[in-house]
Design a protein around this nucleic acid. Structure first.
Lengths: 125, 125
DNA sequence: CTTGACTCTCACATCGATGTGAGACTTTAC
DNA sequence: GTAAAGTCTCACATCGATGTGAGAGTCAAG
């Protein structure tokens, strides 16, 4: 499928799909015309990438994370001394846990606030 | 207390504490010298602000959210037709829920990946 | 008083994620 | 074949959160 359809099906702006490619996270074939041709599997992949990015994962971590399930890293990315990457991902995991906790708090705060506003709105009627 | 101490006690960079003030989220007194003087309560407040911001809440929503518990909005902020704010906060709540879900997924992905890497590292020994 | 640590303001730099517009080519529908 | 819609690349713009440095004043300890 072409980029427009993928965009429609994933809800991800065309601009971002191209951006993912620039980052090496999505690597569509090219038609002779130069148009990108995405595989069916890219629907899921793009969605995952989008999720990861929206979660604040740096794209340079997303790549190894994605590549992995599709074949072991076989000696590792150049410059990747196993331990280093493990440390990076561990840190990222901590960051995620932290942020999730923090967002849960925020959500509660917003929820509380919303209830307050609604109550007030009701009272004013 | 002065800004440095608040920074130490909250872990928030001095720069950010000033930024919060610029955004109207924290409004310390000023000593005659011009130095900011923070109240004890600002430790909590700054922490909350930091959480909210890290959660991606736009600062313009944080202000009304914070002000509220400290005295009802009394007619509302100028230009705030209740309903509008409620809509904004509702949208924000949805966004938060969405992001939390999305980050949970990401966390699981990272966790899985981390286990994989560790297993591989063990295998190589 | 002097010095070192703090603080002030201001302004510019950066960084990642996005938007946007220009100019040119491709595909599709008629 | 023509027009409309889609796509391409490139490059510049924006936006929020931060960093950073300059130049000047303040505070506390000796």
């Amino acid at each position: 499928m072409r980029i427009g359809e993928l965009s429609r099906r994933t809800g991800i702006p065309v601009r971002m799909l191209r951006y993912y490619e620039e980052r090496g996270l999505l690597t569509p074939e090219r038609a002779p015309s130069g148009y990108r041709r995405y595989a069916e599997a890219d629907v899921d992949r793009a969605t995952l990438v989008s999720s990861l990015i929206r979660s604040g994962l740096p794209t340079r971590l997303i790549l190894p994370l994605l590549r992995d399930p599709y074949g072991p890293v076989a000696g590792g990315t150049p410059g990747d001394e196993g331990g280093e990457m493990v440390a990076l991902f561990t840190a990222e995991l901590a960051r995620l846990d932290d942020r999730i906790a923090c967002m849960s708090l925020s959500r509660d705060a917003v929820r509380r606030h919303l209830r307050l506003r609604r109550a007030r709105a009701r009272a004013e009627r």
